[in-house]
Amino acid sequence: MSGVEAVRQEALTDDLGSRRIEVHDLNAWFGSLQALRDVAVVAEPQAVTSIIGPSGCGKSTLIRCINRMHEEVLGARVSGKVLFDGQDIYAPDVDPVEVRRRIGMVFQRANPFPTMSVLDNAVAGLKMVGRLSRGELRRRSEQALRQAGLWDEVKDRLDEPGGKLSGGQQQRLCIARALAVEPEVLLMDEPASALDPASTLRIEELIQDLKTQFTVVLVTHNMQQAARVADWTLFMLYGQVVEFGPTRKIFTSPDDKRTEDYITGRFG
């Protein structure tokens, strides 16, 4: 835990300290089906925390609990605490809309808005909520698209519908869209699972860039991806945390036999 503390101290010195996520005793249900059991984890600022595990282990549910998207599913319920900035996002006076604005999310399947152009998609959040001038929106759009490493590819087709881009470009457009509202944390739910290897590589490079400014939480079923980009790794099984620690430790000398089995591909 001393490593965590060190990172934390370091982060505090440049006002990123408030972007830490702490999950305590988190339980989540779909109807009567319990998807998460007593999950606890910390996601540090300026680091990538990855969540791995076989499908159905609850990793997507966990990440969706961090910005209160889980409750959007019919019959879904949550108990426990998720501290962001020291505040419990599940406290009664908290506005889920505000939580989601500050904790952005990128989904597994790219979901650009089909009725909006590339330019508008990138600033969709700002357009729908704020009252920015056209020029300002354009400037912010360009900035977000550059941040997502997409600008050079789309600068000549900004007026085309977002759905016309390739799969990898669509996903980066969604990342741009999430970045444009200037979140403090970026949640990524298997952002590259539907992409080809080249696009995946671009996304991974992008994640490496983004972690200098954001707290990044990445769900992936691809262990190599976790090993490549993550600083911290959480291994889950059947809705429970099996092991959490620095990525290198998880992948080289895990404490738990089940983690080792999964890492080495022996798990069912």
Partner: peptide
């Protein structure tokens, strides 16, 4: 850090 009271329900 931005000075607005965070997360509070509007």
């Amino acid at each position: 850090a931005r000075g607005t009271p965070p997360l509070r329900r509007r």
